[in-house]
Each structure stands twice: as C-alpha cells, then as structure tokens.
C-alpha cells in the first residue's frame, strides 16, 4: 500500500517545504489526462471569454476569486484525451 503523501528528499539543496509545494502544484497543473473541450467564462450571465480547455489554467484564479459571481461553463468535450 502506497503512503498517503509523497515524501520529498533533497540532497544538496535547501527548503524542503517549499520544494514540496512546488512539486505538488507542478503535478496537479501539468500532469494528468486532458479532456479537450472548451469553456466560456461568464460574469453575471454575460459570456466574456471563450477558451480551449488547455488554457483554462490561466483563468481559474480569476474564476475562483469571483465565485459565485463568475462561473465556468464547459461546452461538450470532443472526447479526445491524452496524458
């Protein structure tokens, strides 16, 4: 059974916690299956920006800050996926 949290071992370098956070963020943002599709960012019911899902990462911060005023609505994915 795998341990619940990844362990970080640094040899020859510095801050362990900071490295750990960077590793985690790198994994969740850059690794994993991508469902190709598209999203529309809307504010107060007005569609503002159309994005391919591959570029949604740059917009999520804005979206989260404005919840529930801002919503992300995805359109139908094309079913193509890659890792």
């Amino acid at each position: 059974m795998a341990k619940q949290s990844p362990e970080i071992v640094n040899i020859g370098s510095g801050d362990q916690d900071e490295v750990s956070l960077v590793d985690i963020l790198d994994h969740v943002l850059n690794s994993g299956v991508v469902i190709r599709g598209s999203v529309i960012i809307s504010v107060a019911g007005v569609d503002l920006i159309y994005l391919g899902v591959d570029v949604i990462l740059s917009s999520i911060e804005t979206a989260l800050r404005h919840i529930p005023g801002t919503s992300l609505n995805s359109t139908k994915p094309d079913g193509d996926a890659g890792a």
């Binding site: 059974m1 341990k3 619940q4 985690i24 299956v33 469902i35 899902v53 992300l72 609505n73």
Partner: peptide, 23 residues
C-alpha cells in the same frame, strides 16, 4: 492533490489535470 493521494493509496488511478470541469 489530497484527494488524488488518498485514492492512490488504495488503487491505481489515472488523474485528470486540474482543473477539469464538465458541464
């Protein structure tokens, strides 16, 4: 990440990239 790790500790997984949102 915590969700993925908890499930990974029990079984093999294929993760989705964060954030994957479907309608």
């Amino acid at each position: 990440h915590r969700v993925l790790q908890t499930i990974l500790s029990q079984a093999a997984i294929i993760p989705f990239r964060f954030p994957t949102i479907l309608s």
